[in-house]
Computed example of a mutant assay.
Amino acid sequence: MTDAPVLIDRLADSTGAVAIVTLNRPDRRNALTVDLKEALVAALAEVAGDESVRAVVLAGSGPAFCVGQDLGEHAAALDADATTAFDTVAAHYAPIVTSLATMPKPVVAAVNGTCVGAGLGFALACDLRVFAAGTTLGTAFSAIGLTCDSGLAGTLPRAVGEAKARELVLLGRNFTPEEAVGWGISGEIVPAEEVLAAATKIATRLAAGPTLAYAESKRLLASGIDRPLADTLAAEGDAQARCGRTQDHAGAVRAFLDRDRPTFSGR
């Protein structure tokens, strides 16, 4: 296997391509160094801009998904200049999470093992998740005297409610996939050896679907909770009109009337 910090694999069939973006520091449980973060920013930009890619899987190599920031590198950055040690939040973490959350195609997190700190933020920024049974999840920040990054201050309370989010962040206790699903962090739970296959199966199904409509839905859902109802209704109307002008919509209506299965091309 290549020693590149991030790998991109494309699986293509007649319905379009699925890109698998893999964090590739298995010996360090995919702890995030500057090299890995920069490579991930670039990889996500590449698959987001590739029109042949219709769905994305975010995975981790080895036994962990991502344990968050590489603390050895972080300690060195603090020693060098504590005033710049956190520039990485704006330079790397924010672009990564923004790309995952706003990419105009579905993203599935294949959480194959330990997923804490920024790793949890990345997983929650994805649209769907598959968890390995027995995986350790956690916020982790308070244990090292820090607060949230990677969007967790927004995605976690949206998923589990404000009270539970406060508990998970302030107490910093780890939790299981079963607890996560019970609290509202949606996700399928499968044996560890089946995580990537299960996530890829979901992504392949999504890649065959109406990707333009998925993109509109992601935008609507991202702001729908915080927006006044009148604004949401107006945004839905605009989005429906855009979808209604696509070949995908017209073809699906014809297929429905002909009692046939629709084929979506992303146009």
Score class of each variant (00 low, 15 high):
7 L>N: 11
8 I>W: 13
12 A>C: 12
12 A>N: 14
13 D>S: 00
17 A>N: 01
19 A>I: 05
20 I>A: 11
22 T>I: 00
24 N>K: 02
25 R>C: 04
27 D>R: 04
27 D>Q: 08
28 R>V: 02
30 N>K: 03
31 A>W: 04
33 T>V: 06
34 V>R: 14
35 D>L: 03
37 K>V: 01
40 L>G: 12
46 E>W: 14
46 E>N: 15
49 G>C: 15
49 G>T: 11
52 S>Y: 08
56 V>K: 15
56 V>H: 15
57 V>L: 14
58 L>R: 13
60 G>Y: 00
61 S>V: 10
61 S>N: 15
62 G>S: 02
62 G>E: 06
64 A>H: 08
66 C>G: 14
68 G>L: 05
69 Q>M: 08
69 Q>K: 04
72 G>H: 13
72 G>E: 10
76 A>N: 14
78 L>C: 14
79 D>M: 12
80 A>N: 13
82 A>N: 12
82 A>S: 15
83 T>W: 04
84 T>L: 10
85 A>N: 12
86 F>W: 01
87 D>F: 06
87 D>P: 07
88 T>V: 13
89 V>T: 07
90 A>M: 04
91 A>T: 08
91 A>Y: 03
94 A>K: 01
97 V>L: 06
98 T>S: 15
101 A>F: 13
103 M>L: 12
106 P>Q: 07
109 A>W: 05
110 A>R: 08
111 V>N: 13
111 V>D: 11
113 G>Y: 07
115 C>V: 08
121 G>D: 10
123 A>E: 15
125 A>D: 09
126 C>Y: 14
128 L>I: 01
129 R>D: 09
129 R>F: 02
137 L>V: 01
142 S>T: 11
142 S>C: 12
142 S>R: 08
143 A>V: 02
147 T>L: 07
150 S>T: 02
150 S>Y: 04
151 G>K: 03
152 L>C: 06
153 A>W: 09
154 G>S: 13
157 P>Q: 10
159 A>S: 10
161 G>K: 01
164 K>F: 08
165 A>T: 03
169 V>R: 03
169 V>I: 04
171 L>E: 13
173 R>F: 05
174 N>D: 07
175 F>V: 11
178 E>N: 11
179 E>A: 15
180 A>F: 05
181 V>Q: 10
182 G>F: 11
183 W>T: 09
185 I>E: 08
186 S>P: 12
189 I>E: 13
195 V>D: 13
195 V>P: 04
199 A>P: 03
200 T>P: 13
203 A>P: 09
204 T>H: 15
207 A>Q: 07
208 A>C: 01
209 G>L: 00
210 P>T: 00
212 L>T: 11
215 A>T: 06
218 K>Y: 08
219 R>I: 08
220 L>Q: 00
222 A>V: 02
223 S>N: 10
229 L>E: 11
231 D>E: 15
234 A>C: 03
234 A>T: 03
234 A>H: 01
235 A>S: 06
236 E>W: 06
238 D>W: 02
239 A>D: 10
241 A>N: 09
244 G>Y: 02
246 T>M: 05
246 T>N: 04
250 A>T: 07
251 G>L: 03
252 A>F: 00
254 R>S: 06
255 A>D: 12
257 L>V: 05
259 R>L: 14
261 R>E: 14
